[in-house]
């Protein structure tokens, strides 16, 4: 197999697949946020991703970077709350990271994720173990760094495991932090939606036979 990498089309499919999962799980994500936040996370993500789908349907994109940029800007503008700037910044940093590339290979994808995580950390000032989406993005970046080729199943597993581990954490950033000990026992909503995003990437790579 030739290592073609992720093309614009794959990014489009990634966005679509993520959107599907977000819409399907809108109520679940909102319920997670009702338990330890203000109960809008599913609504926010669903609104933002729906808009991103609409926005990116308007143009033919020349490169992954251009598409990622519109995706990111739409999230920043339409998701709102804490997750808007965080997911938006993550995707925007990816867009900047892959600028000028027609295809994204494994190393480039890893770098893109590293920069996405850096953006998230810079924006939200959270560290690992504070029960935020950082607790999914940090492990997944380490996972990418520790490997040399994309293993869909392992990638998804790693993301899922990371998400599930937020359940036992006590929140120290974001709204759930107000709950202190009472935040323990619930999955962090932003980590759950991060999982859907990562799982979707994995599924696209798997299904389209992308060799990254």
């Amino acid at each position: 197999m030739i290592r073609v990498g992720l093309t614009t089309k794959h990014i489009q499919l990634w966005l679509q697949k993520t959107n599907e999962k977000i819409q399907e799980n809108k109520t679940y994500l909102t319920e997670l946020d009702q338990a330890i936040g203000d109960g809008d996370h599913g609504i926010n993500m669903a609104r933002g991703f729906e808009e991103a789908i609409k926005k990116t349907a308007e143009s033919d994109y020349e490169s992954p970077s251009d598409l990622l940029k519109d995706w990111a800007m739409t999230l920043i503008s339409k998701v709102g709350g804490a997750s808007g700037p965080l997911f938006g910044t993550a995707i925007l940093k990816m867009s900047m990271s892959v600028k000028g590339k027609a295809e994204i290979n494994y190393a480039e994808l890893t770098t893109a994720f590293e920069e996405a995580l850096a953006g998230i950390l810079q924006r939200g000032h959270a560290a690992e173990n504070q029960k935020t989406l950082v607790d999914v993005w940090s492990p997944i970046v380490r996972f990418l760094q520790e490997n040399t080729a994309f293993d869909s199943a392992a990638f998804t597993n790693q993301a899922k495991e990371a998400m599930e581990q937020t359940k036992d954490m006590q929140a120290e950033k974001g709204r759930a932090a107000y709950l202190k000990e009472r935040s323990i026992g619930h999955i962090d909503p932003g980590s759950a939606s991060s999982f859907y995003l990562l799982q979707s990437l994995s599924e696209v790579i798997e299904k389209e036979g992308v060799t990254v």
Binding site: D40, N44, I76, S77, K78, V79, G80, G81, P85, G88
Partner: peptide, 12 residues
């Protein structure tokens, strides 16, 4: 005026 209980985005 952001969505209910949700900060508006930076553009707004």
């Amino acid at each position: 005026c952001g969505p209910v209980f949700t900060s508006p985005g930076p553009d707004q």
